Amino acid sequence: MSLDRDIALLSRIPLFADLATEQLRLLAFSAVRLDLSPTQVLFREGATAMSGYVVAFGGIEMAVGLGEQRQVLTTCEAGSLIGETALFVETKRPATATAIVSCEVLEIDRKLVTRMLNEYPQVAVKLRATIAGRLAATVGDLGEVEQALGAIDDNPLKRSGSG
């Protein structure tokens, strides 16, 4: 993949969508390209996360557990960002990521993101606004779930049937 195609790919990632071409170029130039074969593991559940991954092409399956206890959570297609939190803080991988077809991913190291945030304070402001907006939306969604669960708990038919 060429640098220009990597920049275009990164510009479609919601977290990076508001970045200037200069910042996208830095990310694209510094990212490490990884080619994965079908069934190849990108990372394992519980591993320390030091980077995020952008799926350039192919598909990555996210799953927890092993053997019969294994549960697929989602499939990440081209244009997906995997491990966004790891771009900002040290964390553990919540799931195992496995290629389901031949894939190419761009690995973006947390040190690079930290350097970019230090060198371009306006990027930090943009990313903070993006993440704050998402957090506010999540809190709102959780409030709706809380109300729905409260309505279920307040249902007199449910209470009378549980004796």
Rank of each mutant, 00 (worst) to 15 (best):
119 E>F: 01
6 D>H: 05
15 L>Y: 00
80 S>R: 11
46 G>L: 13
87 L>G: 00
51 S>A: 15
42 L>A: 05
122 Q>T: 15
44 R>D: 10
125 V>S: 07
40 Q>V: 05
110 R>E: 11
115 R>H: 14
66 L>H: 13
78 A>P: 02
11 S>V: 00
65 G>C: 08
88 F>M: 06
13 I>W: 00
25 R>Y: 04
57 F>D: 14
73 L>V: 15
76 C>V: 07
105 V>L: 07
58 G>R: 07
99 A>F: 00
87 L>E: 00
48 T>N: 12
73 L>W: 09
103 C>K: 05
32 V>R: 14
92 K>G: 09
70 R>N: 08
115 R>Q: 15
102 S>Y: 12
89 V>E: 12
96 T>P: 00
117 L>K: 08
14 P>M: 02
7 I>P: 01
126 K>M: 13
112 L>M: 10
10 L>C: 03
56 A>C: 02
51 S>P: 01
8 A>P: 03
49 A>S: 14
48 T>P: 11
35 D>A: 11
93 R>L: 10
30 S>W: 03
88 F>I: 06
30 S>T: 09
75 T>Y: 10
14 P>C: 03
88 F>A: 06
35 D>T: 10
32 V>H: 12
112 L>I: 09
107 E>R: 15
62 M>D: 06
118 N>S: 15
50 M>S: 13
72 V>W: 06
24 L>T: 07
61 E>I: 08
80 S>F: 03
19 L>Y: 02
14 P>S: 05
116 M>C: 08
13 I>G: 01
38 P>A: 14
47 A>F: 13
123 V>P: 01
108 I>D: 00
126 K>F: 07
125 V>C: 05
92 K>C: 10
118 N>D: 15
59 G>L: 09
74 T>D: 15
91 T>D: 10
92 K>E: 13
120 Y>H: 11
84 E>P: 08
